[in-house]
Design a binder for these strands. Structure first.
Length: 313
DNA sequence: CAGTACGCCTGGTAGC
DNA sequence: TGCTACCAGGCGTACT
């Protein structure tokens, strides 16, 4: 399921292909996924790509943006003459695009080249096996009025962690504004007073943006904290450890190109590799990487939850 | 208000 | 083998 690292991987992958291109047509095969009037964006040029939590925003040179949520199985894949030979993951629904899962198809023109050096048409495919995702045409001044974006909590984005000593690049800044960065103090405030179990708390997008089931499970293992404990029972030291663990797992996933346990593929239709390096997620019955006792799976807040009962207290 | 249950959706798989 | 039942889960909605 695309979480912060997966959406960020797609954003970075897409921006070098999409920026400067003009949308010349949109084919809508599944109507419920595309919300709004396609006429509002046809003819517009793509000027920037941003990410807010698990949401992706394609900014246009008119009054509109395209807001995209991939939910469980959504994919955004770019193709042009040069990328035609890149092998697609079977998770895209076939060996060529459009596939049976390609529900929205954007036709793009490269406006940067003159006629003599025209790179020709290009396509952006929105694929979605389970059809949970959406693409919305939104006026620029109304984007942050949408509850999904307006209520998004601060984000644990590695590129912006102040204590890392790294100066965030402008590219990193553009994808997650500094004012919306999850600082240790903000994290403490969120966790300290909460009567909710820590794992569903980490996944609540209104409190913290971008963490889903995979990274909530792995971060809690890394910090040696039982996922069932309520936020208010965590000590200062445990909160510190968990804060660091969240950044560590997200950073690791970005390095592996995201997790393709479900249907995630990057902007070119290729799989990530974090699913082969999870600490506990998807590893029921396997030996714990630290103590060798079997990983258990329980249900918490209606979601599959993996943990090591002897390491996580 | 905070917490919880359910619907959306399809492919994979366990069980008969 | 072929059928049914159930599971995966992000998020909006409805409910307690």
């Amino acid at each position: 399921m695309p979480e912060l690292p997966e959406v960020e991987t797609i954003r970075v992958g897409l921006q070098k292909y999409l920026i400067g291109r003009k949308i010349i047509d949109i084919k809508i095969r599944v109507a419920k996924i595309f919300v709004g009037k396609k006429e509002d964006v046809i003819g517009a040029k793509i000027v920037n790509l941003r990410r807010i939590g698990k949401g992706l925003i394609i900014e246009l040179d008119n009054n509109f943006v395209l807001a995209v949520h991939l939910k469980m199985t959504g994919q955004l894949i770019y193709r042009d003459a040069k990328s035609e030979n890149i092998k697609l993951s079977p998770k895209t629904g076939g060996t060529t695009l459009p596939s049976k899962y390609s529900h929205i198809i954007f036709k793009l023109k490269n406006q940067k080249s003159n006629l003599k050096n025209d790179e020709g048409d290009a396509y952006l495919y929105y694929n979605d096996l389970r059809r949970f995702g959406w693409i919305r045409v939104v006026r620029k001044d109304e984007l942050m009025k949408m509850p999904f974006f307006k209520e998004m909590g601060p984000e644990p984005f590695v590129g912006l962690k102040p204590s890392s000593g790294l100066k965030p690049s402008s590219g990193l800044r553009s994808s997650a504004s500094a004012s919306n960065f999850l600082t240790l103090n903000l994290f403490k405030n969120i966790v300290e007073g909460s009567n909710v179990s820590i794992k569903p708390l980490l996944m609540d997008q209104k409190r913290i943006g971008g963490i889903g089931n995979i990274y909530a499970n792995d971060a809690l293992f890394e910090a040696k904290i039982d996922p069932r404990r309520k936020g208010k029972t965590l000590s200062d030291e445990e909160i510190n450890n968990l804060y660091d663990a969240i950044f560590a797992v997200i950073k690791k996933s970005l390095e592996y190109g995201g997790s393709s346990d479900e249907n995630f593929v990057n902007a070119l239709g290729q799989e990530g590799n974090y699913q082969n390096h999870t600490l506990v997620y998807g590893r029921e019955g396997e030996p714990c990487k630290v103590c060798r006792n079997p990983i258990e799976k329980i249900k918490l807040g209606g979601r599959g939850t993996y943990f090591c009962p002897s390491c996580q207290r």
